[in-house]
Design a protein around this nucleic acid. Structure first.
Length: 808
RNA sequence: GCCGGUGUGGUGGAAUGGUAGACACAGGAGACUUAAAAUCUCCCGGUAGCGAUACUGUACAGGUUCUAGUCCGGUCACCGGCACCA
């Protein structure tokens, strides 16, 4: 019989879905659970991409093995379906985004089935489903009620093409992450989420979870905790000006101050500033630049000195000038910095340009050439009164203590992380369930009322002033205040795409619940997610946001664990044939459907796992796919030629046990490429030795998570299915016997002075004397040791012997 | 600039400090075939040699060690992230 993959795959996919579904979770909550999670896809019009196949296949393998090992496994799938591409497509083609979403989900579903993934299809989640997003809205309302959602007028990133506010995280190199158009700054009243209130816990609790290191490091750097000091400077204007510094030890070296152009004192001091016209012009210029332009253009420092106002250095009572310069950011610290040109390179550049004095307060560098910033702990304090003679490390706490005692400052922790801009002036997103009442302010809709439906609109186009399309729907906008009953208006902004993905893994635990986001029992049993795999690109966005929401839900008692994911791994990208990113414009996108049609889904699954180290980027090669197909052909032929015996062939025992061990361990460590290589080696050996049905049985069980269709077919063909009444995927995962993985003899390397001279075959666990005797019998060893004395022998059991020799 | 990662045959990639190149792809030789495809067998880092073999080889130049692709310090290149963060 021929290996007809198309027929086989259709047969088994149908059976798994209709006749013998095996992937649904069991209600048996006494069994140990395993919750394996992949990042649910955005159902784009392009359909599934080989980039999806890599993480999906890996987690499918892990979950299929866990099921065979007896776990109660939850392996769900869903769709993150709100978002701009769908909305833009809808606008362009005049099709309702809900319809676009439905069609795309149907297409994705078909493609996912074609790859044989063992998702629990009863638990599909769609973020645009009212039954789902009413709970997204519910979580938002809880955030609002706890003061973590607030409205603020602030400069926001405004995409000139999408006509939409973007989060800082969505702006890449000054352009919109999605459409590539320039982003400018614009003042707008926005809903914000106070993620910064959780900054400390988001960092500290990383110690409690098993994430790969680079994810932890990236999150820590993104949150950017910095332990410093706030110090108050008095000014000749009478106002006290507060600065933030991590180097309070250099206070005696401060020779000027700089304010950010947005600093409120500038306007306040307008009448005192003699050169106000010049200052105002500078402020205006800065306001018209995007963040990107500001950082681009500021390689050369610019700024204006304020005439008529000065500050006093509290350490030595010296009067120092104040500047305004756009290298100081209003959004970080206090929007004001103290200038220490001797020990900060930016300050040094600035002081040199404006001819300001440079004072050395830490000895160790040459401040006439460049700033002596903190390197190692080499510097010793000078010109600093009571700090003189101390190291920098000693001086920092000493100065913190001093400013605190003097009442002019205090230690302060700052974060780079900003609060999350949560509004979008868009249609295709969750409506924000708030009402603005002229009497009562912002009021949440009544949670007991029917959920706030995203209404049908005539047009999804933005209004001319950049407001959401919803704002044009006066029937919907005009409502009554839930509190006082007076006339009020609904919020017309919607939530960003990240909202729905913040908690979807909770919904999978109990997806049809109408009374809660999930039942307490389901949450208790399934939390936390045992293993979450996803892309590195989501490390600082989705992964951080969802940890934040989850911590909040934990605080209000809605979920039982402080962290959502126990373990996080990350896959590398699949690059096109030329080693470049796959993209439509490069024309190097590989469609999994084409590979499935030509080679079958099992080959596709195997190849995408065999292509390389899972965590690293890998280059796709359609040529190399053949190798995986050939392997399956060999498995097929081997099964057909297997002898009737259901016992394991003695000659194959060692290789089979070794392979069970290797595949079992490699799957747990996500080393799927070497697991497959081990099975290839086993097949090569079994072919050479001749194999029985008993041998085949073990091999098929190991291969079952990787290439499930062909395995089920062969399982049936060899009569195992008829005998046990079970499919291979329902069988018990094979266990290896350590003693059987070891062969009776081993090949050992013989070295003389560390150089390889030959190999010898020895009984396993041979003692040193026997090994040395055998080694000395090797011609090359005898030659190399002739006339020499062996001064030392190093034996590594079952691996090598190294003879250290010296002339006699 | 800072943070993280990577550097191994023609290619993708393997190697708890212990025989570098497993397993594949491509290539070469042969078998089968009228022929091709498929399949099977063998070869396949470099230099020298008919060959046994010798030397050499994991980005570069060092160090530690009986032994280094692996550990340590330095340099270079590439990839990803952040970027005036005080």
């Amino acid at each position: 019989m021929k290996y007809d993959f198309t027929a086989i795959e259709q047969k088994w996919q149908k059976r798994w879905q209709e006749e013998k579904p095996f992937a649904a979770v069991t209600g048996d909550t006494t069994r140990e659970k395993f919750y394996g999670l992949i990042e649910f896809p955005y159902p784009s019009g392009q359909g599934l991409h080989v980039g999806h196949a890599r993480p999906f296949t890996a987690m499918d393998i892990i979950c299929r093995k866990k099921r065979m090992q007896g776990y109660n496994v939850l392996f769900p799938i869903g769709f993150d379906a709100f978002g701009l591409p769908t909305e833009n497509y809808a606008i362009k083609n005049h099709i309702h985004p809900a319809k676009v979403t439905r069609d795309n989900i149907a297409n994705f579903t078909k493609q996912l089935h074609m790859l044989g993934y063992s998702f629990d299809w009863d638990r599909v989640v769609d973020t645009t489903d009212l039954k789902y997003y009413k709970w997204t809205q519910w979580i938002f309302l809880q955030l609002f009620k706890h003061g973590l959602a607030y409205k603020a007028s602030m400069p926001v990133n405004w995409c000139t093409s999408c006509k939409c506010v973007l989060a800082n995280e969505e702006v890449v190199e000054g352009v919109c992450e999605r459409c590539g158009s320039p982003v400018i700054r614009k003042e707008k009243s926005q809903w914000m989420l106070a993620i910064t209130k959780y900054a400390d816990r988001l960092i500290d609790d990383l110690d409690t979870v098993d994430y790969i290191n680079r994810v932890k490091i990236q999150q820590r750097n993104w949150i950017g905790r910095s332990e410093g000091t706030e110090i108050n400077f008095s000014t000749t204007a009478g106002d006290v000006m507060t600065v933030y510094t991590t180097r309070c030890d250099t206070l005696f070296g401060v020779t000027y101050m700089v304010l950010s152009p947005e600093h409120p004192y500038l306007k306040k001091w307008q009448d005192r500033i003699a050169n106000w016209d010049e200052v105002a012009a500078y402020i205006d210029e800065a306001a018209h630049k995007s963040d990107f332009e500001r950082s681009e253009l500021n390689k050369d420092k610019t700024g204006v000195r304020l005439q008529g106002v000065a500050a006093i250095n509290p350490a030595n009572e010296t009067e120092i000038p104040i500047f305004v310069s756009d290298y100081v950011l209003m959004g970080y610290g206090t929007g004001a910095v103290m200038g220490v040109p001797g020990h900060d390179q930016r300050d040094w550049d600035f002081a040199t340009k404006f001819g300001l004095p440079i004072i050395e307060v830490v000895k160790g560098g040459d401040i006439t050439k460049e700033a002596f910033a903190l390197k190692d702990d080499t510097g010793i304090m000078v010109n600093s009164s009571f700090l003189n003679g101390l190291t920098v490390k000693e001086a920092i706490p000493a100065m913190k203590k001093w400013v605190t005692e003097q009442g002019i400052g205090h230690p302060k922790t700052n974060f780079k992380l900003r609060d999350w801009v949560f509004s979008r002036q868009r249609y295709w997103g969750e409506p924000i369930p708030l009402v603005n009442c002229p009497q009562c302010g912002w009021v949440p809709i009544d949670e007991r009322e029917p959920p706030l439906l995203l209404p049908e609109v005539e047009s999804y186009e933005l209004t001319d002033d950049g407001e959401s399309p919803l704002s044009a729907m006066t029937d919907w906008v005009n409502t009554t205040c839930p509190k006082c009953g007076g006339p009020a208006k609904r919020e017309t902004d919607t939530m960003p795409q990240w909202a729905g993905s913040c908690w979807y893994f909770l919904r999978y635990m109990d997806p049809h619940n109408d009374n809660a986001l999930a039942s307490k029992e389901a949450l208790e049993y399934w939390s936390p997610v045992d293993w979450y795999n996803g892309g590195m690109e989501h490390t600082t966005l989705h992964l951080l946001y969802s940890r934040f929401w989850h911590k909040f839900l934990y605080d209000i008692g809605a979920v039982p664990t402080p962290e959502p994911y126990a373990k996080r791994t990350s896959h590398g990208m699949i690059l096109g044939e030329g080693g470049e990113k796959m993209s439509k414009s490069r024309g190097n996108v590989v469609n999994p459907n084409d590979i499935i049609a030509q080679y079958g889904a099992d080959t596709m699954r195997l190849y995408i796992m065999f292509v390389g180290d899972f965590e690293k980027a890998a280059i796709w090669s359609t040529e190399a796919v053949k190798g995986s197909k050939r392997f399956l052909d060999r498995v097929w032929n081997l099964a057909e030629s297997a002898s009737e015996s259901e016992d394991v062939t003695p000659a194959n025992e060692a290789i089979l046990h070794k392979t069970i061990k290797k595949v079992t361990e490699d799957i747990d460590e996500l080393k799927l490429n070497t697991a497959i290589a081990a099975m290839m080696t086993a097949v090569n050996e079994l072919s050479a030795n001749g194999c029985s049905r008993g041998d085949m049985r073990l091999l098929l069980l190991l291969l079952s998570p990787f290439a499930p269709h062909i395995v089920e077919e062969l399982w049936e063909m060899l009569g195992f299915a008829a005998k046990s009444g079970k499919m291979a995927c329902q069988e018990t995962w094979p266990v290896y016997d350590e003693s059987k993985t070891v062969a009776s003899t081993v090949a050992m390397a013989v070295q003389v002075n560390g150089k390889l001279k030959g190999t010898i075959t020895m009984p396993t666990d041979s003692e040193q004397q026997a090994v040395v005797d055998a080694a000395m019998a090797v011609d090359k060893v005898r030659k190399a040791t002739e006339g020499m004395t062996v001064v030392k022998t190093i034996l590594v059991k079952n691996r090598l012997v190294n003879l250290i020799v010296k002339p006699q």
